[in-house]
Design a binder for these strands. Structure first.
Lengths: 184, 184
DNA sequence: GTCTATATTGTGATAGAC
DNA sequence: GTCTATCACAATATAGAC
């Protein structure tokens, strides 16, 4: 790999890392290209050499996590996934990509960009249906929502409030808490 | 009350209702005054007769719910509030103001406007500390976050997925689920 | 790869007529 | 109370030099 190419890749990665932070802090719509360029220490035009639009930066950020969620949802559709395994997978995905998750779950301003590409809400529906495990009563659905909330938002908030990681101890607590929510 | 004044109040209420919906759907930064005026069926200038800035619309929307959260946090600071009561209050507050809650909890773009006025994150910290009930271990904190996630985000998602209300049955499920999360 | 300069559109907000 | 017209500026994005 040539030196210039390597630097290009590194710059691209830097842009993504900075954009991730800024989007998480101020939202996608609340962050301008000028904001990113400022913290990057370059001009706006330099940014457009690496990405052809602001939307493309967002897409580059969310593609990997969303694909992971899509794959997990696909599994839930085709085979039976135990609640324990699903909750564990959701917790791990939340931690691995927790900065991007601040966008995926929370930021309403990304919807216009992402709804054409991915069906995030559909995946959520699939997870909750899988957690309910055939129970279509109102109470059963509520318990599934509660478990999902623990796995996704509980974990997310805890990681946010901490140092960006989740200890094995805390992970175990969230796992058992979510599973307890499911008990009738 | 004169007819003109009554109409003014009604128009103001209509603006707030529409803004609430649009902010929840596209985020605060992702919604323009022109967007609101369009669905309102009037001009932008008409909007500025009722509110002197976009920020003021947001403030009018969040003042009441944030005050309610602030009062609840204040109670938790001064007296001992049982987990059952606190979770119940959080669930009820979430349902009562669920559209605004989409903004308060989720939208990062409101921070720049609201952080000068209210300490939302501080209230969250207070609730979690109160739920942990003196347990400062990592596991205890994790359980408190889990319970808070059920009360706030679980309820919110369930209301969102439903018809905008929470049945007594579902409320009971979220209450017990959250309390179960707290058990060691 | 990065720059300055600029085109173009969007946005919050105001002036003044009705 | 609402309108049209407009301002000042910020936004995304591009052109073309280096």
């Amino acid at each position: 790999m040539a030196a210039a190419e390597r630097d290009g890749v590194r710059t691209r990665a830097r842009i993504l890392a900075l954009a991730q932070q800024l989007f998480a802090a101020h939202g996608f719509a609340g962050t301008s290209i000028a904001d990113i360029a400022r913290v990057l220490g370059t001009s706006k035009a330099a940014l457009y050499y690496h990405f052809k639009s602001k939307d493309e930066i967002l897409e580059a950020l969310v593609t990997e996590p969303v694909s992971a969620y899509a794959a997990l949802a696909e599994r839930c559709e085709t085979e039976r996934v135990s609640a324990k395994e699903l909750v564990g997978a959701l917790i791990d995905l939340t931690v691995e990509t927790h900065t991007v998750n601040a966008l995926l779950i929370n930021d309403p301003s990304i919807n216009a960009v992402l709804r054409r590409l991915y069906d995030v809400e559909g995946h959520v529906q699939t997870f909750v249906r899988s957690l309910a495990d055939g129970d279509t009563t109102e109470a059963g659905r509520a318990r599934a929502w509660a478990a999902f909330a623990v796995a996704k938002q509980g974990t997310f908030w805890a990681v946010q409030a901490g140092d960006g990681t989740l200890s094995p101890t805390a992970r175990e607590e969230f796992l058992t808490a979510a599973l307890r929510c499911l008990e009738p």
